[in-house]
Amino acid sequence: MEDLSEIYKSYANEVKRFLLCLTSSEDLAEELTQETFYQAVISIHRYNGECKISVWLCQIAKHSYYDYLKKAKHRNHTSIDYLTQNGVDIRSNEDLPDIAMMKESRLRVIHQEIRQLKEPYAEIFLLRTTLDLSYKVIGDIFEKSENWARVTYYRAKCKLAERVGLDEL
């Protein structure tokens, strides 16, 4: 087993990105990243090597987030400000102001609809589209099969397309 500080250096950013995808809050993602590694240190004896360390850490992160939700009894919603801060360019220099406003409005609607999807659809859709995780990794995080992740993502995509009135996402 690698030294714990090396594990932190190697995987902290990946875990934080995963949590950022779930929480839509930089501060909360940072806090839960710390909690994840604290829980990992406490339970390091349970890591059996059957999955990648990153998958094991993301499972802990997911459970830390769910614990947070149980305690907080609310969800943070993604704002358009969050999207622009994190590299989603909703206004290119080529767009006229009216077109940019329409893009922003459409993006806001789509993101609100993503958050309205039942779990695990929203989470899987965001993991796949935001973090570009493979179906295998998503399946491992949920302790399900790769095929389950693939089918669930497809269903989420169909539900979202139906909700926002698009033919296909």
Rank of each mutant, 00 (worst) to 15 (best):
E94I: 04
L126I: 01
Y65A: 01
T78D: 01
L127W: 05
Y68W: 15
S92G: 00
M102K: 14
K103I: 07
T84E: 14
H111E: 04
S105I: 06
S105D: 13
A122M: 12
D98H: 07
A100R: 13
R108M: 06
E94Q: 14
L83E: 07
L107T: 13
S79N: 13
V137D: 15
S134Q: 05
N76C: 01
E143L: 12
S105G: 09
I114V: 11
D95K: 13
E113G: 05
N86F: 11
V137N: 13
R75Q: 05
I138E: 02
G139P: 11
H77L: 00
P97E: 12
H74M: 05
N76M: 01
L83P: 09
M102A: 12
T129L: 08
E119P: 02
R128Y: 14
K136L: 08
K103D: 08
Y121T: 03
H63Q: 15
R115W: 01
D81V: 11
Q112N: 14
R106T: 10
I141K: 11
D95L: 09
E119S: 02
S64Y: 02
P97L: 02
L117S: 03
E94N: 10
P97S: 09
R108T: 13
L83D: 07
I80F: 05
K62Y: 14
R75I: 00
V137T: 14
K73N: 13
T84C: 03
F125Q: 04
K103Q: 11
T84K: 14
Y121M: 10
D140W: 01
N86Y: 10
D95C: 07
P97C: 04
E123G: 04
I110R: 10
R75V: 00
P97N: 06
E94P: 04
I99Y: 13
V88S: 00
L107I: 13
R91H: 08
R75D: 02
I60Q: 03
F125Y: 11
L133P: 05
H77I: 00
Y68R: 11
R128W: 05
R106K: 10
Q112D: 08
E123I: 00
A122K: 11
S92L: 01
S92A: 00
L83C: 08
E119K: 05
P120S: 02
I141T: 08
L133A: 04
D89Q: 02
S105T: 09
A72K: 13
K103Y: 14
D67L: 14
H111N: 13
E123Y: 01
D132Q: 08
V88P: 03
D140K: 03
Q85V: 06
K103H: 15
R108Q: 09
